[in-house]
Design a protein around this nucleic acid. Structure first.
Lengths: 341, 341
DNA sequence: AATGATGATGACAACGCTGTCCGATCGGCA
DNA sequence: TGCCGATCGGACAGCGTTGTCATCATCATT
């Protein structure tokens, strides 16, 4: 092993190329202003020394924020989040920006701590999936010029752009579809429940039920917030009752898979209609009908919005809704079992 | 909307607190050396001004690398990659480091470009899932003191730590299991095939077959590198032949799901035994036997190794193998159909 | 030939922070 | 009371880059 080398700086390159450091700087910034011969000489020297401009110093000098965008997501375990992350990364890479990710494990108190860590890195914009009840702690930062974009859920007590899904419409459509098939006892299960998305989805479910004259939906709702409760068990409980539902809408992919496990354990449950919110990789193989949307597009749009805001911070904030649609694959088109009604 | 504010600096805080900027600096670094009363005064002032230390300046001054770790992954679409990312993030967060991610879309030429972008950010270490045939372009950087850790596949032409799976053992075990059930015509399908992991897995498969006296395995191998080829079709082709295999091992989760789709399309294929490499979320619901491992642990270990290397760059590089194990869920325990043998 | 316009290059300071070094302050002890 | 040591605060420089401004050579124009 040879000894530790020093990292080359602009000055080192300048000395080797026989020019001033400013000229080298120009070569790596506004190449236009330097004569071709000099550019060549500098580049040769830079390559010889394996020079790489120090973006720390560059960004410091340039006054603050970097070309790095921060993204605070919930737990990485959920495919939804990382597909959003993928979309963000794609769009940022296309524009020469880097992505700094942090997770909160979906706990509210983690959010501010994590945001602080990201902001200390002088990120150029902050994307987040809000978990805490209150994002006012970001107000100061926003004021300082860091754009904040809320994804999936609007920020609370903070002026920020937001990208959300058509939660209400999706749930309404799914419920209506089941009602049209003749179902009356339609359950809605989710965990966690105390988040914006679920509130909207439940509202869509209730509205559709109400439109069909069914008002006592609370009997079929299973809105749980205990993270340790197994989705499978929640669904199993629902169908162990005498007046078991004939159909169920699951509020997210974890719950959908939980329902599938519960059905599998029961064995007799091929008769139960199921529509899940969120698509997932093997939903087609399993024949599961879902309310789908494009999480990658969600991420891409969020990134695009962030980049726009960096360019032009003023202007009214937007709240954009992304479409959801029903994908029929089998489980959602099952009519109620004979005599169940 | 009120106008743009200025970001507070150490000096601003110092002025408000009536101390020197160095004292404020100490409060945010070695709090020990400052009297409690002063600490309090400084913190109050800092809070009033919404001061946040500028880590750009700090890291620049402290001489180079940051507390940010870069991770180059393939496409984010694959659950394997993001679960590794999740593990990395967990471990880094625990140690006060941030994670900068970049993707290459699994194209070799993207890798160096992306690595360059990350290294310009003066990351403290680089984790990557090698895609290119040659990582020698990182040699200079490694020499400059940036630890490089290869994940899932060893780096080529570069001295670097590596974390890989027991690919050979896993495939050997799966193949042996199928052989023990009486299967002889066992296929192996994967795409892409020209990567380290697949080479190892194929080797494990061949060795197990050879141990059972079967040497013409090329008849059952479907090693494809055309990314546009649909996994489903590849498997379908394999089973459309007269001497169709009675069992198949799929080289990764995409191929496993492709096989399930192909089987589903055929309808008669419940008889075909299947063991897939990589676990996935609904494998239990689908009853799919797999060669499993813990991708999150892989990420965690990689991060831990990186942090170790930052602390103590010298020392011999390690190549660590993480265990794989067979999970029996149904498809892998099917004996060959009557008369098939 | 004198003039201004143009283009290429360099000197210098500063971005916000911290390491080094030194000076100020205070309590305790003779 | 005076002095010493311990402890805490501050002045200064510099990390690697870029913005500003100045300098100088070259060239076209009258």
């Amino acid at each position: 092993m040879s000894g530790q080398q020093q990292r080359a700086t602009l000055d080192d390159v300048a000395r080797l190329a026989g020019v001033s450091s400013k000229t080298v700087s120009r070569v790596f910034a506004d190449r236009e202003l330097v004569s071709p011969a000099t550019v060549e000489r500098v580049l040769t020297a830079a390559k010889r020394l394996r020079f790489r401009p120090n973006s720390l110093a560059r960004n410091l000098r340039r006054g603050g924020s970097t070309n790095t965008i921060g993204f605070i997501m919930g737990e990485l375990g959920n495919p939804f989040y990382y597909k959003v992350a993928a979309g963000i990364e794609q769009e940022l890479a296309r524009n020469g920006h880097a992505l700094l990710v942090a997770t909160t494990d979906d706990t509210p108190d983690g959010e501010e701590r994590v945001a602080d860590a990201l902001l200390a890195q002088r990120i150029g914009a902050l994307l987040l999936i809000p978990v805490a009840d209150d994002q006012s702690y970001l107000e100061g930062e926003r004021h300082l010029g860091t754009p904040v974009i809320a994804i999936d859920r609007p920020a609370r007590n903070l002026v920020a752009d937001a990208l959300v899904l058509e939660n209400h419409r999706g749930a309404f459509e799914a419920t209506s579809r089941l009602l049209a098939l003749g179902h009356r006892r339609i359950a809605y299960a989710c965990n966690p429940a105390a988040v914006y998305t679920q509130a909207e989805r439940v509202r869509g479910y209730r509205d559709a039920m109400a439109a069909a004259g069914i008002h006592d939906t609370h009997r079929w709702e299973r809105l749980v917030d205990d993270r340790s409760a197994a989705p499978e068990q929640l669904v199993a409980d629902l169908f162990a009752r005498d007046d078991a539902p004939t159909a169920i809408i699951t509020g997210n992919n974890r719950m959908t898979i939980g329902a599938l496990r519960a059905f599998r354990a029961r064995g007799d449950a091929d008769a139960i209609a199921l529509i899940g919110f969120d698509d997932f990789d093997t939903a087609d193989v399993l024949g599961v009908s879902v309310i789908s949307y494009d999480p990658v597009a969600l991420g891409r749009q969020a990134a695009r919005l962030a980049l726009e805001r960096i360019g032009e911070p003023a202007g009214f904030t937007k709240q954009i809704e992304l479409p959801t649609w029903l994908v029929e694959r089998g489980t959602g088109e099952r009519p109620p079992a004979e005599g169940a009604q």
